[in-house]
């Protein structure tokens, strides 16, 4: 064995109008083979109308250890939500 097939992440759009969603991953020699394999592994029952494959090593992911500084600041910004604002009871269409 000279070199192992790289890992690919598979994203499937289940129908037009919806976004592609991560389905899982698989190994393939190149992008074309990854697409073909993704079709057999992840869409055997009409799960999709479109497939994306991305070489896993091209994905940059946030580190859960930084979740505090990344995501906590959004927690105390209640004024970004409509329920923060006080309106008279009889106001309509708002």
């Amino acid at each position: 064995m000279k070199k192992n097939w790289p890992l690919w992440e598979v994203f499937v759009r289940s129908k037009n109008g919806l976004e592609h969603r991560h389905s899982g991953s698989l190994h393939a020699a190149d992008a074309e083979m990854a697409l073909e394999n993704a079709r057999d592994v992840y869409t055997r029952r009409n799960e999709g109308v479109s497939i994306w494959v991305v070489a896993s090593n091209n994905i940059t992911a946030s580190n859960p250890e930084n979740n505090g500084e990344l995501f906590e600041p959004a927690q105390d910004k209640v004024y970004r939500h409509p329920t923060f604002y006080e309106l008279p009871d009889d106001v309509k269409h708002m």
Binding site: K2, A29, D30, M33
Partner: peptide, 16 residues
């Protein structure tokens, strides 16, 4: 299947 896996990888690298 080893030679098939190797051939596919060699082809992919050549194409790249």
């Amino acid at each position: 299947g080893e030679w098939v896996r190797d051939a596919a990888m060699a082809y992919a690298e050549k194409k790249k």
